[in-house]
């Protein structure tokens, strides 16, 4: 199954829960807001972590496309 992530940067307020759940896919920009590190296809091995990143974001700023 293919998977990509979309971040709604305007909704992100820098909780960093995504980076805690999936540090390979989400990082932090200069002000501590989320930064997507893998903009293309997410490797299958990281799918579980990405789903957790989505389900831990208090701002619901992450959308998974598959």
């Amino acid at each position: 199954m293919n998977m990509k992530v979309l971040l709604d940067y305007d909704s992100c307020h820098g909780h960093q829960m995504c980076a805690i759940a999936a540090p390979e896919v989400f990082g932090s920009d200069e002000i501590g807001n989320a930064k997507v590190l893998i903009t293309g296809e997410i490797p299958a091995a990281l799918h579980v972590k990405v789903r957790r990143a989505e389900s831990n974001c208090p701002e619901r700023a992450i959308t998974i496309i598959e």
Binding site: H13, G14, H15, M17, R52, S55, P58
Partner: peptide
Amino acid sequence: RQNNRHVAFGSGIHR
């Protein structure tokens, strides 16, 4: 816990 959208640090612009 896998699903934890907690708001211990608040939510929105005042996070």
